[in-house]
Amino acid sequence: MARYRPPAQSKLGQIVDVIVLLALTFGALYLPLYMGLAGRTASPSPQENPTWESLGQNEAMVERWNALGYADPTAAQDIITSRFDYSFGALSLIVMVVVVVGYFVLMFRLSDREYREVIAEKFGRE
């Protein structure tokens, strides 16, 4: 098999390649943020006139809340009552599975094509 000779890359080309990679990186990080799709946060469900009992806290817990600087139930209740919402739709789950599995299938297939070329050139010449 003929040996593949890569072209030498110019300084400018090297710089362009770095800029492309950086643009991709910042895009992946900031796009979901700008589109307001960033991660879910836990939301509290405050009660009116909460007491430690109504918040389900026993004596030992109350003692610890006090030591942590939360003197009364009203101050602590936002932390105590906040819960994540784990509901999800089947469609979004399927989309995730397809994207992740599809990504890895694509990776392994294209990699294998390139790998065969490498092995042929490396061991074919011996």
Partner: peptide, 18 residues
């Protein structure tokens, strides 16, 4: 997926484009 599904997709799309 339960907490950060959108970021997961965005990340994978980033790696596909790259």
């Amino acid at each position: 997926f339960l907490g950060y599904g959108t970021q997961l997709i965005a990340m994978v799309v980033f790696y596909i484009v790259a």
